[in-house]
């Protein structure tokens, strides 16, 4: 069975009911995806499947056949949100961080998310260290910088700043 993992085609011989989480961690040796509960509650195992966030502990690998799977390693450490998690101390112990970053990417389509948008987007990810505030600061800053950054389309930027 084949799927695309972080942009590259991979083939797996795993059992079709194997958890995507285990295939990523044990077969593909990508350990940035973490297991916190095995019940889809903590979000530490969040990955993107065709751009949508899922808990990889609840996904049979058979169901990602032909799909695009993105893990934290797929961001290559170059995503601006990763830097902002560092700057704003959005990571303390760090175990929830990969899942948090990937879940936050859903806000990529939202040019100016409100705090409530951020809260809702991250409601499926538990963090026991930060109380979440530093994570909000990182995410909001990322959207604000993306909104005013050099890559923002000029007409959009001007429309928003009227």
């Amino acid at each position: 069975m084949r799927f695309t993992l972080n942009g590259l085609p991979v083939e797996t011989n795993a059992h079709p009911m194997a958890r995507l989480l285990d295939v990523l961690r044990e077969e593909q040796r990508l350990t940035g995806t973490k297991e916190g509960c095995g019940e889809g509650e903590c979000g530490a195992c969040t990955v993107l499947v065709d751009g949508q966030s899922v808990c990889s502990c609840l996904v049979p690998v058979a169901q990602v056949e032909g799909a695009r799977v993105t893990t934290i390693e797929g961001l290559h450490g170059t995503h601006p949100l990763q830097k902002l998690f560092m700057d704003e101390v959005g990571a303390q112990c760090g175990i929830c961080t990969p899942g948090m970053v990937l879940a936050a990417l859903a806000l990529e389509d939202n040019p100016v998310p409100t705090l409530d948008d951020v809260r809702t987007a991250l409601a499926g990810n538990l963090c026991r260290c930060t109380g979440y505030s530093a994570i909000y600061r990182a995410v909001l800053k990322w959207r604000a910088e993306a909104d005013s950054g050099p890559h923002a389309a000029p007409e959009q930027a001007s429309a928003r700043h009227k």
Partner: peptide
């Protein structure tokens, strides 16, 4: 000063190794 965490990059990239990663 709120200097950059020593372990920030490992945690933000998923490279940091926890017990089950070894």
């Amino acid at each position: 000063q709120s200097v950059s965490r020593k372990d920030g990059i490992g945690k933000a990239t998923g490279a940091a190794k926890y017990a089950d990663d070894l």
